[in-house]
Amino acid sequence: MIATATENEFFLDPSRCIGCQACVQACGECGTHRGVSMIHLEYVHRPTGVQTAPVVCMHCEDPTCAKVCPADAIKQDDNGVVLSAAKSRCVACSNCVLACPFGVPKMKAEIDLMMKCDMCYDRTSVGKKPMCATVCPSGALYYGPRDYIEKHRREAAVNEFQFGRQTVRTKVNMMTSPELTALPFDVLDFLPWEDKDFDPFALARVRDGAPDAANSAVWDEPALSQRCSGNCTCH
């Protein structure tokens, strides 16, 4: 096994994503992914906009997914890359899927195996770029030297996230405001609270000139009404 080239780093800037899906297609081409695309391409908030965001494994320094694995199936290499579940050990319990703060691991129920982005281990371990970063046309996914990013981007790269009381440090960097040293993470502002319905247009209002504020008619769609079956603990 060859050590991962350390001079290159991964930089993620979801705000640059144009939703072209090139990363989704390329991801499955990686040797360790075996035709399965590991990257997530999410609509940030589909009812109010078309903004998409790619999500790759952030490769946490202290990976929650590995810690909650009951079978010791998720290993981290010497360079901090968190690998997919070991095939011999994964018991398909989905602990990692539910515990990852970034929502990255995918449970492939048809083969009882968790698979996740491993930064295209067969490529990065020999100095090549991950597939997604190779094809991304907008720079939302960039893999290369830090000097280049510092020289060509207005944003700054951070690798620390504050999830409530939990600080998570990662190998992959997120582009954010130059004043910040860690990405503050808020959830409470984006939840429907009992005394206040979630305002779907709040996001559009904070973005000057946002072109994608949805027509209010979308809220008449039955599919967007309450989806709770009642067989739960949330009532």
């Binding site: 609509y43 903004q51 965001a53 929502g103 009381r165 409470l188 973005r207």
Partner: peptide, 30 residues
Amino acid sequence: FSGERGEVHYQDICPACRRGLLAINQGRTL
């Protein structure tokens, strides 16, 4: 997460929303 409105455990947020929230929070800082 705790604030004036109450407390939320991140385990109560689905993985898809966690991915969306990552982009929303990043966009907000920018």
